[in-house]
Amino acid sequence: MMSKKTSLLFLALLVGAVSALAVANTTKPLADRHKDVGLTCDACHGDGPQKPVTMSKCLACHESYAKIAERTKELEPNPHDNHLIDLECTKCHIGHKTQENYCRSCHADMEFTKSSQAALILPADHARVFELNR
């Protein structure tokens, strides 16, 4: 278990790491994208036996579903604001595989579109624009 102080330090490092990043491709597996910004396995998996990551771990850094929805609000429909409220992140963002659109389990033709070249704004303090590759 990380102490609160260590967690804060970790978060500060994370913010720094992400800020150092220019552009990430969303077709790349999530784990690789995290790796690209300098995160290590234990950032998500902890230092114990490596288990699947759950939403609480994601939200420890990415804050909340509402905040994430705010960051993707320019997409239509907003992938983080719908009737599947608080869907486990890994249903789409499969750690070590290319991410999938879980909505397509039912909505076979669901696309998240933006009028022009889509750009996803990551957390404000990260201050980076990620190109959305569809």
Binding site: R104, S105, C106, H107, A108, D109
Partner: peptide, 10 residues
Amino acid sequence: KAEHPGPANP
């Protein structure tokens, strides 16, 4: 049959 178990495609 659809690939996924949900409703049919549009």
